[in-house]
């Protein structure tokens, strides 16, 4: 390489950096600096009004004896473990149905995708209160057959289930991705399977599922991370309390309560970092286990 071409490349490099300045500034000011600040605050007692006071690991030790913290961990884990598989199964089922060349496919695809856009909105959370409330649509329906139902949202045994139903209802986004994945599976493979005498179920099990595993894996990662961060629905449905009896106290809602209701920013930062590490660990585990069940076609 001549010195002129090195100079040329350097000049190009400088130009690239100039164009990257807005992004770099945004990353530094909006992401990196707050991230590092929250890491520092996690080791302090900070109420916003007064200067942070270094307390070492106290915030993390406090979590061990904090009943609310454990309640929020429990609720979030149940939600992730139940709602994500249900949502993915439902999305895959609908994708398989739509993939069979249904008439009006574009309409159904849009109609099923719509809840994904609305699902985490305030309006839908309010609608959910109206549906599952004491005087809500569900209980009005039950009353027609002589059953007197209580508020589904005020019963600790059913409140979380209503939010799981809400999450499953937003199956549109993974469904569209599944649909795209199904379109990529070559027809010849199904023909070969049929020639070998495979029925619909065997085709699904031995052709569709293996070739769809990268898509399932992709959806699983995205939906798991999203489920860990669920906030709006729980905040609106429970009025920000996580009730009844902590049954909808999602982890992010508890972080919010500590940060913006109690103004205990040090503890809230520590909680947020624990969540980030937990999500990172779960995602890494997914990747580790993926080599045993995800088939990329080239291995």
């Amino acid at each position: 390489m001549t010195s002129r071409s090195r100079f040329h490349l350097n000049r190009q490099g400088r130009a690239a950096h100039v164009f990257l300045i807005p992004w770099q500034l945004g990353f530094l000011l909006v992401t990196a600096v707050p991230l590092l600040a929250s890491l520092y605050l996690a080791f302090t007692n900070y109420d916003i009004l007064n200067a942070p006071e270094w307390t070492g690991l106290e915030n993390f030790q406090r979590m061990i004896h904090d009943d609310q913290f454990w309640a929020s961990v429990r609720v979030t884990l149940i939600y992730v473990l139940v709602s994500v598989p249900l949502q993915l199964a439902f999305a895959l089922l609908l994708a398989l149905i739509l993939d069979r060349g249904l008439k009006g496919l574009a309409f159904y695809r849009s109609a099923f995708y719509l809840p994904s856009l609305l699902g985490s909105s305030v309006a839908i959370a309010i609608l959910w209160r109206e549906i599952f409330g004491d005087d809500g649509l569900i209980n009005k329906g039950l009353a027609l057959v002589g059953i007197h139902g209580e508020s589904w949202l005020q019963n600790p045994r059913t409140a979380l289930a209503t939010l799981i139903v809400l999450n499953v209802w937003t199956f549109g986004s993974p469904m569209v991705i599944f649909l795209a994945g199904l379109r990529q599976i070559p027809d010849e493979l199904y023909e070969a399977a049929r020639v070998d005498g495979a029925g619909v179920i065997k085709q699904f099990r031995h052709v569709t599922v293996p070739l769809l595993t990268p898509i399932i894996f992709f959806n699983l990662i995205l939906q798991t991370i999203g489920a860990f961060q669920t906030f709006t629905q729980a905040h609106i449905v429970s009025g920000g309390t996580g009730g009844p009896a902590n049954s909808t106290l999602f982890y992010t809602l508890y972080v919010y309560q500590q940060g913006f209701v109690a103004f205990d920013m040090g503890y809230a930062s520590a909680l947020a970092w624990v969540l980030m590490v937990a999500i990172a660990v779960v995602t890494a585990l997914h990747f580790l286990v993926s080599k045993y069940w995800v088939f990329y076609g080239d291995n």
Partner: peptide, 10 residues
Amino acid sequence: LSLSEQEGMG
């Protein structure tokens, strides 16, 4: 009122 009848506290 029960919590159900009044849709929660407050």
